[in-house]
Simulated assay, not measured.
Amino acid sequence: MYGKLAKKDIDSTIQIYQWTNDMYELRRSLLRVEECLSRGICKSKCQNEEFRPKDCSRLDKKIHKSGVFKIFPDSGSGFKVYCDMDTDSGHWTVFQHRTNSTTIFNHGWTGYKNGFCDINAEFWLGDSLAYHNDTRFSTKDNDNDKNGSQNCASVYTGSWWFGACHYSNLNGVFKGSGAKGINWYYWRKTFDTIQTSTMMIRNRKL
Results as ranks from 00 to 15, higher is better:
165 C>W: 11
126 G>Y: 06
85 M>L: 02
16 I>V: 09
78 G>E: 13
73 P>R: 05
177 S>D: 14
153 A>T: 08
66 S>Q: 08
73 P>W: 09
59 L>M: 07
176 G>M: 06
167 Y>T: 15
149 S>G: 10
63 I>V: 13
180 K>C: 08
171 N>Y: 02
186 Y>Q: 11
103 T>R: 02
144 N>E: 15
165 C>N: 10
159 S>L: 02
170 L>S: 08
198 T>G: 01
3 G>I: 11
173 V>T: 15
86 D>L: 01
142 N>H: 14
80 K>C: 02
197 S>F: 01
126 G>N: 13
171 N>S: 13
14 I>C: 00
148 G>T: 14
164 A>K: 08
125 L>Y: 01
157 T>V: 10
167 Y>I: 03
46 C>P: 00
52 R>C: 09
153 A>M: 07
41 I>S: 02
114 N>Y: 07
81 V>T: 11
187 W>F: 04
137 F>A: 05
198 T>M: 07
194 I>Q: 01
162 F>N: 07
153 A>E: 07
202 R>S: 08
67 G>E: 11
103 T>G: 01
59 L>R: 02
78 G>D: 11
39 R>T: 07
36 C>M: 03
156 Y>E: 09
84 D>G: 05
44 S>R: 10
148 G>W: 02
18 Q>C: 01
22 D>C: 01
61 K>A: 12
155 V>T: 14
47 Q>A: 12
76 G>C: 06
140 K>I: 12
135 T>V: 02
174 F>G: 00
51 F>Q: 07
13 T>C: 05
97 H>T: 10
202 R>K: 14
24 Y>H: 10
117 C>Y: 15
138 S>W: 02
56 C>D: 07
32 R>K: 13
77 S>E: 15
14 I>V: 14
197 S>A: 15
103 T>S: 06
113 K>T: 14
92 W>Y: 08
165 C>I: 03
177 S>H: 04
147 N>C: 13
147 N>H: 13
155 V>L: 10
180 K>P: 00
79 F>W: 10
67 G>S: 09
95 F>C: 05
93 T>F: 01
166 H>T: 09
202 R>G: 07
164 A>H: 09
33 V>Q: 11
118 D>T: 14
145 D>N: 14
156 Y>F: 15
132 H>G: 12
162 F>D: 12
109 W>C: 04
184 W>I: 04
24 Y>M: 11
153 A>I: 05
147 N>A: 10
12 S>Q: 13
55 D>I: 03
70 K>T: 15
30 L>V: 14
43 K>A: 13
128 S>F: 10
103 T>E: 15
76 G>Y: 05
106 N>S: 12
76 G>M: 06
199 M>E: 15
89 S>C: 07
190 T>R: 07
86 D>Y: 00
3 G>V: 10
170 L>I: 12
